[in-house]
């Protein structure tokens, strides 16, 4: 009897995943003839082997960062938590700490894979105002990103942020190419719900790691 779970013929093996990214959903896209990694809010992924990274953004931001000489790059998907307590933290709010962390994790992974800071180029997408009447979290996310890049001295080579649309973003780290598709509002419910859940998780989870004394 045929094994129903056997791989379909013609589907190439997924390129090996970089340790730490095993939980990211990846699949083979036969129409594009390549492997795709799909990001949810809060996730990030880097690739060195001709994969495409895709995500859908409402008010969240994705930074697509790559070493333009090596073709190593990745994408994140984040937003700043809504914080009631705006304590001053080096000139920015405590919620910016979360954004810095999301950016830094992605940059560090690229540097660890051999990338160099001076060769990094950044493209950024999202930050749409997808719910009318709601506080404009998208704009806050965009302002954070610009400030972060300026402080870090990183170049923004392309951007499509703001306005009222959700976006689907496809990023090809080896070439640096990005496809952005603005989505109609009829799809917004899923995106809004997913982002609201993510926002709630951010508020509940304190933004801090572990401390260990040896």
């Amino acid at each position: 009897m045929a094994n129903l779970f056997a791989k379909r013929p013609g589907t190439p093996d997924s390129p090996p995943v970089i340790p730490g990214f095993e939980h990211i959903k990846r699949y083979w896209d036969p129409s594009r003839n390549l492997h795709v990694a799909k990001l949810l809010p809060g996730e990030y992924y880097i690739s060195m082997r001709g994969e495409m990274i895709t995500t859908v953004l409402g008010s969240c931001i994705s930074a697509c960062i790559r070493d333009r000489k090596l073709g190593i790059g990745g994408m994140n998907h984040f937003m700043l938590p809504h914080s009631a307590r705006l304590d001053d933290w080096g000139g920015s709010s405590s919620s910016a700490r979360y954004g810095s962390y999301a950016m830094e994790k992605l940059i560090n992974e690229i540097l660890k894979a051999g990338g160099r800071r001076e060769n990094l180029e950044v493209k950024a997408f999202g930050g749409g105002r997808i719910v009318s009447g709601m506080t404009d979290v998208g704009r806050k996310n965009i302002a954070f990103l610009h400030e972060f890049l300026q402080i870090e001295g990183l170049r923004l080579t392309a951007e499509d942020m703001g306005s009222l649309h959700p976006r689907k973003v496809n990023f090809f780290p080896d070439s640096g190419r990005v496809q952005v598709k603005k989505l109609r509002s009829m799809h917004n419910d899923t995106i809004v719900q997913r982002e609201s859940r993510y926002m709630e998780e951010l508020v509940e989870a304190p933004v801090q790691g572990n401390v260990e004394l040896f």
């Binding site: 405590s94 979360y98 830094e104 933004v207 790691g209 572990n210 401390v211 260990e212 004394l213």
Partner: peptide
Amino acid sequence: TGWIVKPFSPEQ
């Protein structure tokens, strides 16, 4: 002496 995993809060 010790190991702090980012992100960290100012108080921490």
